[in-house]
Amino acid sequence: MFRFRLYWTFTKKAFLRSAVYRFDVWSRLGSNLIFLLMWGSIWTALYAGREEAGGVSFESMLTYIVVSQFLSGVNGAGTPLWEIQEKVRTGDISLELMRPFDVPLRYLFADFGSVAFYILTALLPLYTVMFIFMDLTLPSAWETWILFIVSAFIGFLIRYCIEMAFGLLSFFLVETGGIVDVFYFAMSLLSGSVIPLWFFPGWLEKMALYLPFQGIYYIPNAIFIGKISGTEILLSLGVQLFWAAASYLLLRFVWNHASQKIVVQGG
């Protein structure tokens, strides 16, 4: 039985907790802006004054990057992976295992809270101002906005499940450095977060389309700028749902094995 109210408490608590750590929120926003500056400058330089490249106008491309940075702010506002790994390393995770809730779900709902706080107090005001003052393209139809939000939310779930599954590998390996780096590389590149898939070499684009990462950034971004439209959107959402389900199963699988095999170091 899914006890929504129990998990909702974690969401509320995490929201309030973020409100206390104001400095964290501001500093995260600062580094998000530096990366936006970096990718905005890179794409401006790549287009080098051209109106369009690869069938996409400069304005749309810039919008793609801004939306992408917004989403990466959203995806990066939850409990950091190292914090959970540290809990495994120190053995604190055993305290969570003893309590009557499901640990992966508990962290997901806590993330909802801290992400909501970050969006409301930092991301939304800033990016609204940016959309007003920069030459960016906004979707004209309200349906597109809703589809974008739905798609971004599914993307968030995909990212959470995969990231958590990788993080839980620290139950099996004491040092996960190499594996986690491969994951972050795949996530930043194959998700199309900084380079949209249509600029990839053909073979790599095909590969990325068969992987779950595109659901995190590429699909919502492409919906926003209208690169994906009409029935294609529904198809993309279907793909995202499929990957959300698949990555949830992966997380369940890893979690079941991990919690069986818990090795607490020291005591």
Partner: peptide, 29 residues
């Protein structure tokens, strides 16, 4: 030993990742 090797592998992977990103970026441009 294992942790040591893993960290080096991890570092080389993430630097290679940045290099690959540069390559793809300039593949079209």
């Amino acid at each position: 030993r294992f942790a040591f090797v893993m960290r080096i592998v991890g570092l080389i992977t993430s630097y290679t990742g940045t290099a690959v990103t540069m390559w793809i970026m300039l593949y079209q441009f």
